[in-house]
Design a protein around this nucleic acid. Structure first.
Lengths: 203, 203, 203, 203
DNA sequence: ACTTAACCGAGACGGTACGTCTGGTCTTACA
DNA sequence: TGTAAGACCAGACGTACCGTCTCGGTTAAGT
């Protein structure tokens, strides 16, 4: 989050930021999120559990939401990038979408859901969530999509942004709105439908 | 929301619920939602503006969220159903999706967005929003989709739920998550892509 | 409480007041007072327990306080007048003061205490308590005092109101203010002191 | 009331209590008491007028009552001790009782009355009022009474507590119960009566 | 028998204050 | 300067009662 610019002639004056404190805060924040979702997540609770002062939290994070997002990112994001590239970009893509579905089905998905909700009221939070969590995954997907396009598996003139939205959007709809299940069969049928449209022209 | 306790032998004892009060509360609630979104929306504010007691609100609505949803429904929903049926179900469908996009681009969309966010923390609220706002629109779309299928414009074996998700899901993703624009061009390209996959025949 | 003027030519039209209801209300009110003191005593609670409507209560009693006082009077007062007259007015007087002390030491005293407190904020309540509870006892005492004066046991020129105050006032002080015990010894010493002053002139 | 947590090795950590805030709260509280008595006295009103948060009030005062008593003490008590000692303890005593009567006749007396009433429901409040307001005055009176006893103006074997009760008790009775006037003549007659009983010798 | 009028239980109503809670800021002493 | 502690303001929360009101229905007396 907040950066500390190192001046060329050495380091800034005064006591340096305590990384120990930062880590304790993020850890405590993530624990609270896991234990009771966003309802249980209070800045006071985080400070108390981390043995930190509230002021320290507000010095480094702009709001409750940005702290929540960063705590989520630090704890969850690393475990989530795991789709390796194969010779078939379409197969890769299918695996990526299935992976996303798996995530949103689980505990982490519950958190993402609440973070997205939080982002509706606090644009700072939304911006951070999108740039640091959504965007990286989207970019990875875009790479795969471009590989597929180059390989001729996706029509050349197709807008890949639209294609990506068509593949991931329904997941969000089910997670956030209808709360319908996002099972394997649903994802497969969705992939069949959209990829069919992506490979051939309009009739 | 409102109880309906009409026993066969007459009505419930005691002073009946005041519909005047109910209307004033819903109106005040909707005004506050329009003026400042959910941030400004407080039960105290609604009570004060409606000239109602807080207890009256809590007597009839389970939570802030359900009040917000109902206020939204009463004020907005009636103005929103306007797609008439033509000979071409595909054309009808395109118009329905475009209409949805228009809604979510505007003021009402902002409200829906916040109500969905609210629903993440309060399942009661989500349930009400889905059943009374989302579901009716979805059902209208399903009718059109079935017409399209009967007319042969959509493959017979296609799961229409999946098709609906593929058409509307991306809108929610943009509204709730990425906050990307939902312009006419995007909707057209999305429709082209998904309907291409939905039509009969391969390649 | 409320009086019903009987017109000379018969009674008022309409349904007459239900004595059953009145009794149930007073009984419920007294029970609540006994069980939890004035803190537990709510008009809603009384109505619920009596199976009566709140409107019925407010039709016949001016306020919560007057209901409490009347409930107290109906239930407690009858048990409290028990000092018979003997040949010695001084002995009668001593017994009267001791009896008052006994009352204020006990459960009923706790109630009187709270009713007096209530009367500070609601003059209606205070007026009723004084006129219907305090005054009768005071008058009985005045009779005894006058007997004592006639018998020469109290100086002729003494203001008996002052004497009465000097005998009962300290009890109220201990009950309401200092919460010191009002034991038999204290009352005896008080009687000795004040009666000594009442029998002889200033030095 | 205010905590005093001075450890031997320095002071407590954290931001210290704001005396400015404390003073503003007590001042606002007293103003409200003066303006409308206890009926007007609400914690919300005090907080609003003092520019303080309600939580700050509840952090430092256990109840509405203790706040009211302390506000009263801070504002009123200092102005109330004014009886100087002369060569005649009996004359001093008469002046003390007259002074008390004067107080209870006036504005402050109205407040004390309501504070005593409040104390019936909240022992904490009563305790504070007695210890910080009643007791000091009582102790001053006891000193005078002992002087009178030493000087032979009061019988040696007399229980001075009883004597004090006999002198002040009737005032409380009139203030709290009968609401009869406490005029100069009444006090004089009371003093004559009780002091007659208190003096040495019989008849 | 019919009307009139006051009663009754039930319970919703506007209003007010309660005491709690949290967000975000500020103020200490110490490191 | 950073930090832990914790006080501070602000203001919404949901609850509890107050005293009033509005129903449908009941119970007399007078017609």
């Amino acid at each position: 989050m907040a950066k500390k610019k190192k001046s060329s002639s050495g380091r800034a004056p005064g006591r340096p930021r305590s990384d120990e404190s930062r880590a304790a805060i993020l850890k405590a924040a993530y624990q609270l999120l896991r234990e009771g979702g966003f309802a249980q997540f209070t800045v006071e609770g985080v400070a108390a559990r981390a043995g930190a002062g509230k002021a320290t939290i507000y010095r480094w994070w702009a709001s409750k939401g940005t702290l929540a997002v960063e705590a989520f990112l630090v704890a969850v994001a690393p475990q989530m990038d795991a789709v390796k590239e194969t010779a078939s970009p379409i197969a890769d893509l299918r695996r990526q979408v299935h992976l996303a579905a798996t995530i949103y089905r689980g505990r982490a998905g519950q958190l993402v859901r609440e973070l997205i909700a939080l982002g509706q009221a606090d644009s700072e939070t939304n911006k951070l969530l999108v740039s640091d969590f959504m965007q990286p995954r989207r970019l990875a997907a875009m790479v795969t999509l471009r590989r597929a396009q180059s390989a001729g598996a996706v029509r050349k003139e197709l807008d890949l942004e639209v294609l990506a939205d068509a593949l991931w959007g329904p997941i969000f709809q089910r997670v956030l709105v209808t709360h319908m299940p996002i099972d394997k069969g649903f994802i497969d049928r969705l992939l069949d439908l959209v990829l069919a449209g992506a490979t051939r022209g309009v009739r």
